[in-house]
């Protein structure tokens, strides 16, 4: 029996060793370029959920801007999990490599303060993008989009698409990823505030969670269409919900009959906007956020001075409609590698 188990264990270890070797070789190959760069020309860039198209767009933009300025970007982040538990070990690993600077989108303001402090203590400048650490004064600059403003813009766009008239009632549903996703919370707050102030006839009759699955978002919207036959509009609060909601609206032949405002200018969503499936899309500006962050860092590294660097930059969330010019649509579509 021991012999059988031992052989089994040996094979298992052999398989595991082969897997690890293949993994290390693949990583070495993919990192060959960044290894070639000298350490003081490397800008560490760290985000939560690196595969999110919003962050992918940042990666594309940061890479291009850094290359233009003679630097390279060490892009890191957990693939799908947006959490400090997965982000902190990666930040610590980047610190061990002593980069010239760190650009980070912290997944939690308190939890990431200490990892950020170690960079500052070592004289490495830190810039925050999208989200920030608690002590905002400790970082060189903070460049972000305004999610609450995006929610307000979504309410305006939805009211316009539903031809809002004073005195009438409009049933609206909102698709979120979860109750705790920070960007969702800020957008929903802005959406509700705008409704309260300017569109009292709009009633939010249902809220649903997609748990990052577009099929679940699709199912939620399909069910709402049965449950609320007089539904006038839907606010799909992020890219995943936008994908699912647009599919449901198309499947039920309600394009143009139920107003749909989505979020995030994925290429697929922009294509559907052009076809009129979305009444409007709210686009963030990850390209500009990443570009400005790289510019700030390089400016500081060159002059060792904060002169000319704006500490807080808030970029507006843009409203795209089917009438938006083709050039503007191309400009705001999130780039992919």
């Amino acid at each position: 029996m021991y012999g059988v188990m031992s052989r089994g264990r040996n094979r298992l270890m052999l398989a595991a060793a082969a897997l690890v070797a293949a993994f290390v070789a693949a990583l070495a190959a993919s990192n060959a370029q960044s290894q070639a760069a000298t350490a003081n020309k490397v800008i560490a860039f760290n985000v939560g959920a690196a595969s999110d198209p919003f962050f992918v767009a940042m990666e594309v933009s940061a890479d291009a801007e850094a290359k233009k300025l003679g630097y390279t970007v060490d892009w890191q982040g957990a693939p799908t999990e947006y959490s400090p538990a997965t982000q902190i070990p990666i930040v610590d690993t980047q610190f061990a490599q002593k980069p010239a600077a760190l650009i980070i989108a912290p997944t939690d303001p308190n939890a990431l303060q200490a990892p950020v402090n170690q960079f500052i203590k070592a004289g490495i400048p830190v810039v925050n993008v999208d989200t920030h650490v608690t002590k905002l004064g400790s970082v060189l600059s903070f460049i972000t989009g305004n999610n609450a403003n995006g929610g307000q813009n979504a309410a305006k766009a939805l009211a316009k698409a539903m031809h809002y008239t004073k005195g009438k009632t409009y049933q609206v549903a909102v698709g979120l990823t979860s109750a705790t996703t920070t960007t969702n919370v800020a957008r929903l707050a802005g959406f509700k505030q705008e409704i309260k102030q300017h569109y009292p006839g709009i009633k939010i009759v249902a809220v649903g969670y997609s748990q990052s699955q577009p099929t679940k978002a699709d199912a939620n919207v399909s069910n709402w269409l049965s449950s609320f036959p007089h539904l006038s509009g839907i606010f799909a609060i992020d890219g995943t919900n936008a994908s699912g909601a647009s599919a449901a609206i198309e499947a039920h032949n309600l394009v143009g009959k139920v107003a749909l405002v989505g979020y995030d200018a994925y290429a697929t969503n922009v294509a559907l906007l052009k076809k009129g499936v979305f009444s409007a899309l709210i686009a963030q500006n990850p390209t500009q956020e990443a570009k400005l962050a790289v510019d700030d860092v390089v400016k500081y590294l060159k002059h060792h001075s904060k002169g000319g660097i704006k500490h807080l930059v808030t970029l507006p969330n843009i409203v795209l409609t089917p009438k938006t010019s083709a050039a503007a649509l191309t400009k705001y579509t999130y780039p992919a590698p």
Partner: peptide, 17 residues
């Protein structure tokens, strides 16, 4: 996929009605 959905095929959706 690069993290984003691939394709936007409205005719495919029509099959599920």
């Amino acid at each position: 996929s690069g993290g984003a959905p691939v394709g936007a095929d409205s005719q495919a959706i029509e099959f599920t009605t």
